[in-house]
């Protein structure tokens, strides 16, 4: 008997003409996206709407998390023109909201923080009014690096907790749960008005109580926005899916997280940057203008 996915994990075939237009711009400007590198199931939907999540600092990660499809190895040197091209791409795509993430660069002195700063400034220079959400690695908890990025005021500063602490050893073995929480705490310490965001994948074998525990930990460090999505294994070499979480359970997680004070996106295909502009719009209404830059 061959494998079938649950009915709720069904996507529509995208308009390939629009997808190709997005792809062409990204290819011409030599930019990477996490959409392609992480084999995101939403890529057709997002590319056909001319949106993408940029992945800076190359396409090779210095860490090798078992859930992730991004290549692992020795990365190339930092491309100093990347931020300029990214600013132009945002302009060509007409993005009013952009999400920028990166591979982890433990090999760099500043862990890539400076490149995030350059990208924020380039996007602003080329695109007046475009909101910028960044999704960073943990910068090894380095306070100076985190402060440097916060001071350049992205509209949303995201860092994904990814899974429950009990699964870090199996899934996110080179990261530290406490360090990730502390990063989110430090952002608020530097600028209490900056909106913070985190994401968790479910279906890796965690319990409901463990997920609720992560929510509490994230709220304790002042995290504002939360995304909850189904983990889907990108290949046979990655951690297998332990469980397909039902849409009803996702709805319950959403309610529980909202009750704890988060602005939440929760659903099988929710990813940390999926329709990030919509979540930001809800956040603006919910959290009030005093939290936004």
């Amino acid at each position: 008997m061959h494998r079938r996915l649950p009915v709720w994990l069904k996507k529509k075939i995208p308009d390939m003409k629009q997808v190709e237009e997005t792809r062409d711009i990204l290819k011409r400007l030599n930019l990477n996206t996490v959409c392609e590198n992480a084999k995101c199931p939403n890529i057709g939907e997002c590319f056909s709407r001319h949106t993408a999540t940029f992945m800076i600092l190359g396409d090779i990660c210095t860490r090798n998390c078992r859930f992730c499809a991004v290549k692992h190895g020795i990365p190339s040197s930092v491309d100093i023109n990347e931020s300029e091209r990214l600013g132009k791409a945002v302009s060509e795509l007409g993005l009013k909201y952009v999400v920028v993430t990166s591979v982890t660069r433990d090999d760099l002195k500043d862990y890539g923080a400076g490149q995030f700063v350059d990208v924020i400034n380039s996007v602003r220079r080329h695109n007046s009014g475009t909101k910028i959400e960044i999704l960073t690695p943990d910068f090894k908890g380095d306070e100076a690096c985190i402060t440097q990025v916060v001071q350049n005021k992205p509209d949303v500063f995201g860092h994904n907790i990814e899974t429950v602490p009990g699964l870090y050893e199996n899934v996110r073995q080179e990261a530290d749960y406490g360090m990730s929480l502390n990063l989110l705490k430090m952002i608020k310490k530097v600028n209490s008005k900056l909106v913070t965001k985190s994401g968790i994948m479910v279906g890796l074998g965690e319990t409901r109580e463990e997920v609720l525990g992560v929510m509490d930990d994230l709220r304790d460090v002042g995290c504002d926005l939360l995304t909850i999505g189904q983990y889907l294994s990108p290949s046979k070499n990655n951690t297998p899916v332990a469980e397909f979480i039902t849409p009803e359970m996702f709805a319950e997680y959403k309610k529980l997280a909202e009750d704890k004070g988060f602005v939440v996106a929760s659903g099988p295909f929710v990813r940390s940057s999926y329709k990030a502009n919509d979540l930001f719009a809800v956040a603006k209404q919910t959290l009030g203008n005093n939290l936004i830059n």
Partner: peptide, 27 residues
């Protein structure tokens, strides 16, 4: 219905007619 690593997709008929000669089976 087609299956990839991370999603399934329904594929629609490109034209109207009668389905003949299914060349590939489930799995």
């Amino acid at each position: 219905e087609m299956l990839t690593d991370k999603a399934t997709f329904n594929v629609p008929a490109p034209v109207s007619g009668v389905l003949k000669d299914i060349l590939v089976r489930e799995g």
